[in-house]
Amino acid sequence: MIRAQPFLRRNALGLIGLTILFVAVACALAAPYVAPYSPTSISLVARMKPPAWIEGGSLSHLLGTDNLGRDILSRVVHGARISLAVGFAAVILGALIGSTIGILAGYFGGWIDSGLSFLIDVQLSFPFTLLAIFLLATFGGGFWPVVLVLALATWVNYARVVRGKVMSVKGQDFVHAAQTVGVPTLGILRHHILPNAVSPIIVVASFSMAQAILTEAALSFLGVGVDGSNPSWGTMLNDGRSYLQSAWWLTAMPGIAIALTVLGGNLCGDWLQDRFDPRLAR
């Protein structure tokens, strides 16, 4: 049943995922050096140029130009900044809220647990997409509103997983020992409970990261996404959707970027889940 597998084979998918994410992050950090042009420099006479390998394309615009004659490669590279920033910010915020609630509910139990669990129940019965559109259409889109909404949507995942983990940990001897010798509650939470909850948090985070980037694209489609001077991948995808049949590269390039990054996030998530806790329920 259980075969011995060489390291590389066991970790191949995870390594692929990590590599993809690493490349995406590197692009985002080094965007001004990697991108051949400014992502916002417009040239109306050079609009809709196809990628270099298609007839009519040229090497000066490797991935072609968009409806305003902007270089798509430059926009995809710069777009990584916004899309990844949205993903990371949403993950960090969601994880902070969710883990805090999960730890509190799991450790203290009783009415605190009941109250927080009720909150989780309310959130779970609230249709997420509708919530997101509702909030964003009411308060307006933009970077922070989108991050906030994504965090609001995902904190439950952390809260549930962390609560379960904490409940199992707190019954163990070393926690009892710490309590008996009079370690303050905050200290117990920090030194004994939190470290044990880290692995499930990281697993949920890598899935959430993928989900956040995908959801940002969906929100852009509905007209309530991040919409600033610099494009996110979702915005690019949405801006190009009228040209899907006449100039496919406007949507294909950011689409591939999204799909790859999401794939990276999901591969990492799977891999970490296998390593940390194969039985972890999602």
């Binding site: 993928a210 969906a218 959707r241 899907l244 689409g255 999204i258 799909a259 790859l260 999401v262």
Partner: peptide, 22 residues
């Protein structure tokens, strides 16, 4: 399945229309 999960839904929908309907 991974790829299916990673592709934006509206892209799939628009592509299906382009191929099967138009």
């Amino acid at each position: 399945a991974m790829v299916g999960q990673s592709a934006p839904g509206f892209w799939i929908g628009l592509m299906l229309i382009a191929v099967f309907a138009v």
